[in-house]
Design a protein around this nucleic acid. Structure first.
Lengths: 278, 278
DNA sequence: GCTACTTTGTGCCTGCGTTCACGAGCGGCT
DNA sequence: AGCCGCTCGTGAACGCAGGCACAAAGTAGC
């Protein structure tokens, strides 16, 4: 998988033959790959960075909420099986995901709920509060401003912006709506780290540029445009129309599973990988 | 991102082995695949493009909007390069995606805009209107109901539901809010194919069950829960908190790539043990 | 203390998705 | 007409992600 994992935890006694063999094989493979890449061996840069796959990061957030539910029941530990069911994933995947963040459960028991919650919060950077600025207080933006999901989960909404003179100056949930031209100064002053764009598509890029100029490195974009940003800025996009169109595609693909005993070419894997209620 | 176009074709001496190994593995895989798929001697009967990858479907919707922009400029054709830039993807990826839907561009020229739009709409099933029901007319739901993105793109909102007696009976954009208990009859009567859940988490599963019982096969879920559904039902989830937490992760993993002159914030206290790979 | 049982951690394999690179057609220019 | 340049279409390689299955490590019972 990754480079020699430098087994740092207190390595247990003997019986490591198989693992040594495997590790050696892995090293050989990595070496071959590096050679193939044309790297003259000198550039073996940062082997120490233990990496977390992007897909895993996305799921950690889901696990976190599932853990909240478990915690609410009063349980002190969860097995990977139970937790994965609550999160809607495969148990093995969950265990692998958790292994990426170095989280140790206890074999034969499971994961200690509170400890795991802390660990995930730590990795996701939730121990620190992230000030959020929301731009575009129209239909959607207004709803987002009133949405409890922000402040309730450690993302205090600190600034609101719009261009509409009728909206600038009004007060939403105790926050004054400023003009978009003030994005730079206000965001810098409030130390905003996350910007949420809920403007019409035409305005989004301009607003985005201002956010970037103000030092915001993470943007959540609800506008139906692909934002152009420097590489250091992370953008995530939420697009209602796209989601609906994807669903539409699947609606159009239905009906084949009716009487047709031979599923043509679609469903290759064994169906029902997920839990089915009822 | 432009990558230095350095040359690799002249294969280095040490790399041949690795490449041969890889090639052999690939051949084996292909052979196995052919053996598995080649049992029936039937030719290639279905002209309709089968097996459009899921990831491609998601991008088709993005291409569609980019094409709309292009069309607005009056251009009659686009090259894969231009269109991919507008959609924020790799040109090769775009061409491959379009090849999945059997769309023929013209070599040396590009893609005919109007034809391509029609083709994508056909594949995504947008030639047919899909009645949408929205459940939960609270903060977010109300905003969604007023959002033009529904009807404007071929997804007419036909029904609204809530449990709150203060909301049931009111009229939003000309649509009467019904009680959730009437989901079954109303949805069946209006031939709703897509359900949008914007309720609090606690109510989501119940609402979902009702939708499924009413024959709805596609659900867009804004509630922070993992819905349990039969395999035939397609669920897509939009979760604000998860998106923010993913962004938070990337903020926490402060870039060691290029140091910004401005110290963005006090160093986050606890050293995060994980680094994402790019 | 020893055995049986439970649950984690992970090595390995498989498959999908992305990317590169190049051949194949098409239009324009001379 | 023939050549040239442009752009699509796609085969092949590569890397990431998912999932199985098993060893490791702990608990509980005797």
């Amino acid at each position: 998988m990754t480079v020699p994992p430098q087994a740092d935890p207190p390595v247990g006694p003997g019986s490591r033959d198989a693992q040594d063999v495997a590790a050696a094989a892995a090293r050989a493979r990595v070496a071959a790959k590096l050679a193939a890449a044309g790297s003259p061996g000198s550039a073996v840069p940062h082997p120490e960075a233990r990496s977390v796959p992007e897909a895993t990061v996305a799921r950690l957030a889901v696990y976190l909420r599932a853990l909240g539910d478990v915690s609410a029941t009063g349980a002190e530990t969860v097995s990977s099986e139970d937790l994965s069911a609550a999160a809607g994933v495969n148990p093995a995947k969950l265990r692998k995901d958790l292994s990426y963040i170095g989280s140790n459960g206890t074999r034969g028991v499971g994961y200690e709920v509170s400890r795991l919650i802390r660990q995930i919060e730590l990795v996701l950077g939730l121990t620190q509060r992230h000030a959020v600025a929301l731009i575009g207080v129209g239909n959607l933006g207004h709803a987002l401003a009133g949405y409890g999901g922000f402040a309730g989960r450690g993302f205090p909404l600190r600034a609101l912006f719009d261009v509409d003179p009728d909206l600038v100056g009004i007060n939403i949930n105790g926050i004054l709506v400023e003009h978009v031209e003030r994005i730079g100064e206000v965001c810098a002053g409030l130390d905003v780290t996350i910007g949420v764009i809920a403007t019409p598509g035409a305005a989004a890029q301009l607003v985005c540029d201002r956010l970037v100029a103000a030092g915001v490195r993470s943007i959540l974009n609800f506008a139906p445009v692909v934002l152009q940003v420097p590489a250091r800025v992370e953008v995530r996009k939420v697009d209602l129309a796209v989601e609906l169109q994807i669903l539409s595609f699947h609606v159009a693909r239905r009906g084949d599973d009716q009487v047709d005993p031979a599923p043509p070419a679609a469903r290759n894997g064994p169906a029902v990988p997920a839990v089915v209620r009822r």
